[in-house]
Design a protein around this nucleic acid. Structure first.
Length: 509
RNA sequence: GGCCCGUUCGUCUAGUGGACUAGGACGCUAGGUUUUCAUCCUAGAAACAGGGGUUCGAUGCCCCUACGGGCUGCCA
């Protein structure tokens, strides 16, 4: 067994906001690394200068920070395998491409993008697919087809060229994937991928092999969309002579849309009303984030972890530490996981219910201040205790508890219709007198008094409570009414009942 | 089209040849608790894609079909 230190990398491309699928890939890498006391590395794959988006790199870092996924090495942590930004490693790649040319594993190609586009279009018209491979490479413009002199001449003249991998012919490439087991592919079905671009930058394929090798990456854990290029990557390791230190591969199942077909994409969020990104993306076409939508970072991570992985028990709520302990790539599913926004809410609910009233009060206080309400923490904690089980998010606390802080501004029509009877105003007027004569200090004593009062006056409990609630809360919802009354106090209670008596009567006319 | 990967309740999943009357969770439905609403409790509906093998025995192994997904760029 190899005693190699576990080193994994998360290698996003800074082309926009990182979506939740990417966060999950980072999570699985992190869990795996920490489980084996290994290193978790951030490498920025910015080899495509045309797709670079300012702010994306910072966004990625902030997102993962919010998720509490700490890197051991990376663009901001540094490390002895740096630099960790591929654009800053530019000088490294050319020599490796040259090495492949020298060993006859790669060749120069002079076909212009336009020529290739035309070829693809021509093939398309005949319902065929153009692939730059061993069957055709000899008839295209490259150093395999040209004489040595011709190639030299073109190179010397400064003609643009790319370096393509000379994919081995007619061999069966057998690969091992930790999640999927053995995967076999006939090499002839893989095309001669570009390794080095005419702008002097490597493609992903070259850069990722070279960097993983140089950075001593032990395991490559990435999305399933990379599985088709695994034969190429394995062939590259072989061509370089690095097969004995080649990392082990694990291709994660994709995250699918909640409804319809296909993998989860940016647009789905707007359409179905849930965030696709971890945090708010502020540039260009902005996008909402889980953080801003009120999700707790640990709930978000927990939810993500269970999409494609589970420890085989019935436990569903895990701390990061528990996940690290229990994680294993062998227990990652093979099939794509459809994301369910409803279950995401449930996870947040679970985390919210676990918080203490004081913790929630601290989170709720700024929200209240935003509404212009200055309430003490003790009082808010009391309120939170009464309504927290009714909400999934901190911001939902407001609609469940606003009546502790301000009088209702309207009255629910349906409740008025159902509970506001002809005799109601008369009953409430009498209740008003009763209320001004009792203490509001103790909720239970209030109930005793009220019961006595209702009994002597021959009034039913429900008859008065529903209407009373309507005037105090504005609808038929909320926690125990006497508790609410005792908390807002006698003056406020009486004010609301009087206002209700006025307003609701007017409604009836 | 070609290549590759996959397929258990609507969704996330448990299941590693007999323990399966296929378990849990979300959601849904019904009942109970609650003066209201929500919570909570209880119950319920709900799945092995289809067909062939292999085996004494297939959810689990093999093959085919169907369906789903990914890739097919000088993108990653």
């Amino acid at each position: 067994m190899s005693e190699r230190k576990v080193r994994v990398r998360f290698a996003p491309s800074p082309t926009g906001p990182l979506h939740m699928g990417g966060v999950r890939t980072a999570l699985f890498n992190y869990l795996f690394a920490k489980k084996y006391n290994g290193d978790f590395i951030l490498r920025i794959e910015d080899t495509d200068q045309t797709r670079y988006v300012p702010g994306a790199e910072e966004y990625i870092i902030e997102s993962l920070q919010w998720c509490k996924l700490q890197f051991d090495e990376g663009v901001s942590e540094g490390g002895k395998y740096g630099p960790y930004r591929q654009s800053e490693r530019k000088a490294i790649y050319k020599q490796y491409a040259d090495q492949l040319i020298a060993s006859d594993n790669a060749y120069f190609a002079f076909d212009t993008p336009q020529e290739l586009d035309d070829l693809r279009a021509k093939y398309e018209a005949e319902k065929k697919t153009f692939t730059y491979d061993s069957s055709i490479r000899k008839s295209l413009k490259n150093s395999l087809a040209f004489s040595k002199d011709e190639t030299e001449k073109r190179l010397a003249s400064g003609e643009h060229y790319v370096i393509r991998f000379k994919m081995p012919e007619n061999s069966v490439i057998i690969m091992q994937d930790i999640i999927r087991g053995e995967v076999k592919v006939t090499s002839s079905t893989v095309d001669d991928k570009v390794l080095f671009k005419s702008d002097g930058m490597p493609t992903y394929h070259l850069a990722n092999i070279v960097d993983d090798h140089l950075m001593e990456i032990s395991h490559v854990i990435r999305g399933e969309e990379w599985l088709p290029s695994l034969p190429l990557h394995v062939s590259l390791y072989r061509a370089f002579g690095w097969e004995n230190t080649m990392p082990q591969f694990a291709h994660l199942p994709l995250l699918l849309k909640p409804t319809g077909n296909g993998k989860l994409s940016k647009r789905d969020g707007d359409k179905l009303g849930f965030p696709v990104f971890p945090i708010y993306w502020p540039y260009g076409e902005t996008a909402r984030g889980y953080r801003e939508d009120g999700y707790f970072n640990d709930a978000f991570i927990n939810m993500l972890a269970l999409l494609g992985w589970n420890p085989g028990t019935e436990q569903e709520i895990f701390t990061l530490e528990e996940m690290i302990k229990l994680f294993s790539l062998e227990r990652v599913n093979k099939s794509g996981a459809r994301f369910d926004p409803e279950k995401a809410k449930w996870f947040n609910n679970q985390y919210l219910q676990k918080k203490t009233n004081e913790e929630l009060a601290d989170l709720y206080l700024p929200y209240l201040q935003g509404k212009g309400i200055n309430a003490g923490k003790m009082m808010v904690a009391e309120v939170v205790a009464l309504v927290k089980e009714r909400v999934n998010f901190v911001h939902e606390l407001w609609e469940q508890s606003f009546f502790f802080f301000q009088a209702p501004e309207s009255y629910d029509e349906n409740v008025v219709k159902k509970k506001w009877k002809e005799e109601t105003p008369e009953i409430l007027k009498n209740i008003l007198k009763f209320l001004s004569g009792i203490s509001f200090e103790n909720r239970n004593e209030m109930e005793e008094e009220l019961k006595k009062y209702l009994e002597t006056n021959q009034i039913g409990f429900g008859q008065v409570m529903n209407a009373l609630r309507l005037t105090i809360v504005g609808s038929g919802m909320g926690p125990d009414l006497l508790t609410i009354m005792s908390m807002i106090g006698r003056d406020e209670t009486i004010k609301r009942v009087e206002k209700g008596l006025e307003t609701i009567k007017l409604h009836q006319v």
